[in-house]
Design a protein around this nucleic acid. Structure first.
Lengths: 221, 221, 221, 221
DNA sequence: GATGAATGAGATTTCATTCAT
DNA sequence: AATGAATGAAATCTCATTCAT
């Protein structure tokens, strides 16, 4: 399911903690900020709009986050915390490496499809050379144990003779990610250039088949 | 070779034409604009900086382009005109579909690697829902005959029994693009999260191998 | 002894009185306010900082003082009450007018040296045309019986043939004050312009000699 | 003659130079800034008012001076450049040290009386610990050759047997300055406390007599 | 065509003050 | 009495755009 506007409240947060009761207001501002930054980029985002969307006022933004840039940072962390915790909840059937890969592919692709704000935030952050992520890069919530899981799946598959050896886990993960990420990220220009509505439900399902097929053919022995 | 800063002057084209002598100044402003927009996004771009980088002044920007938005549009068209004309110069060995696919993959990947500003502009345009591209979408310079070429290669391969049938040309092209595009586009966040310098020369070569391998395994019968 | 930071709690007074138990909190806020106003001026003072320095919160400031301006007024009164009560405690040896003048000079100079916040508050109040002091000018705590004492000393000295007649008490007091006040008040710019640390202990002692010498030569017959 | 409001255009400027024709506008903004800062202090000054008083707009302030603080710095330098150049134009009759001292005293006192904005700026700068002056302290326009002149006068007087030896030139200059400076600087609080209008014409003349008398008695052999 | 000055709208940020508990 | 949250007005600063020459 695609929800353009936003897709916030991902991480159980806890990233900053602090104040007592009105954590809900901080949360509302953060959600609004994610929507805003993912819609307009950093330079185009307006603190005014962020406050208004959260039914609050600009001063609250500064009260809770200090500055527009710090707010962006908090939004970025939250967005990453969201996918991280979703990944942590993922269950792989290690007895069936092929199924495990399918699970990973489907999860990853649908996460992008369902969280366009996540996709845009990543793009925005890359536009800025990932300097903010660097600054926050040591936060444990951002680490990606997912790669260890990919490695484990690959190892199992190789041991079982199903997968071929010599495949780099990070490189594979980048490929899985890329095949879905660009599909979501670039859907607007692709629509204009190729005339296809990529996020139509059947289109999504077909794309998932392509990605799964492509990755499995790549790893299979 | 990667050149961060910019990578302008793509189409010798003449999308707007007009004045004759000081076309070089228009060109300089356009190059500067591409650098600026691809570095800061639309909202973060500064007309002042664009003018200064071109050793000119703001009034010239307005003289030549009318407004910041129109300048962005011109930059976008220029960027697309660049890849279009490069694609037009591409030669495929149709007698060897496998080689033809390799040629396409390498060209596409290296174009992204060598033109990071192109990649960023695409991302920026998608952030904005491709509204500017839509507005300029009927320009002949932007159409993508590349897809027809992919279709032709696929058809040849199927006819020769080398490729399996049923592969959608656009979908395949999106995959080829995606495997390289995200690699370049998201390299900063990937570097922070995975600790790898994706644009080191050997890394690029290895990635090209992965992409080629993956696509060929996917299309081969 | 010089104490930069602050020098509050001058009058144990009770200019406003009122609540009984947590008078210490009012006092803490007032001390903090004196530090703040004397450091940043009225416009530069921050209610937030005043509250924080007193380990309290802004609402308390408003609870006790009503407004920032009223707080400034209270601080000003407190500061003047402080010197007034110190002056009241001064003992002059009227039998020796020369010694009495020396006592006055030393007291005055050292009071400025020891109470830089007092000096800054006076300057701040003068910057604002003394409108606040005017508003509070009828408070008995602010009247200056010191001038009557100067007059008495002068009269005694003239009667004893030690001092020359015709010296205006207020004018003399202004001179005594000025020679020390500016030395303290302008020490920062004087340090930059002349490269001398005016508040070094020996410098202070030497300055006191100069002032005493100058005033005595002026009044002596 | 006292002119409260302002008293600008002191230094032949040249402190920053730059732009061509519209130096008059920069000058107007600077004059307005001097009025504003000397009236409200740094924290109380309003960029809006500064622009409006100069019949300009805020953006021009930032165009010419960069920031409110830099504008304050420029104003401070201008103010100091003003007294410096007036001092440079002073002529002393070195054949008559007593007259020379009189000249210096009268010039100094009347400069304060006639330039209340100068006095207030000095006070404001001292309130802030002279950090701005320190930052600009190496500008040649700010050095004080006046002290060398005082020394020369003292030396002549001592050589002629008119003045007593052992008087420190800087200390003497501080005294001369102090006796007039505080009189002008603190006139508002002194008016409230003592009920005298210190800047009435006759009061000024009488005060000049006091200062002259006091200094001469101090230096004479 | 070209340039520096000028401007007004609007952006981010601050801060005195009040509210709810 | 005491506290943290909330707010609106206003302050500083920015920037796309236009003007005058």
């Amino acid at each position: 399911m695609t929800m353009e506007g936003n897709d916030a409240t991902p991480g159980g947060n806890g990233l900053v903690s602090g104040r007592r009761a009105p954590q809900w207001r901080r949360r509302a501002l953060l959600d609004s900020a994610i929507t805003e930054f993912s819609t307009y980029g950093i330079g185009g985002a307006r603190v005014d709009r962020i406050a208004a969307r959260a039914s609050s006022n600009k001063a609250m933004v500064y009260h809770y986050f200090g500055s527009k840039e710090d707010l962006y940072l908090a939004a970025l962390q939250d967005i990453y915390g969201g996918i991280r915790s979703a990944e942590d909840r993922l269950q792989f059937d290690m007895a069936d490496p092929r199924a495990a890969i399918r699970t990973l592919i489907e999860f990853t692709f649908r996460y992008y499809v369902d969280h366009p704000a996540f996709v845009r935030m990543i793009n925005t952050e890359n536009l800025h050379g990932a300097v903010h992520l660097s600054a926050a890069g040591d936060l444990p919530d951002l680490s990606r144990p997912i790669v260890a899981k990919v490695q484990a799946i690959l190892d199992h598959g190789v041991a079982m003779g199903i997968f071929r050896p010599g495949i780099d886990a990070i490189d594979l993960y980048i490929s899985i990610s890329a095949l879905g990420f660009t599909y979501v990220s670039n859907r607007h220009t692709l629509r204009v250039l190729f005339g296809r509505e990529l996020l139509a439900t059947e289109a999504i399902d077909r794309r998932l088949e392509t990605i799964t097929d492509m990755i499995l053919r790549f790893v299979e022995a």
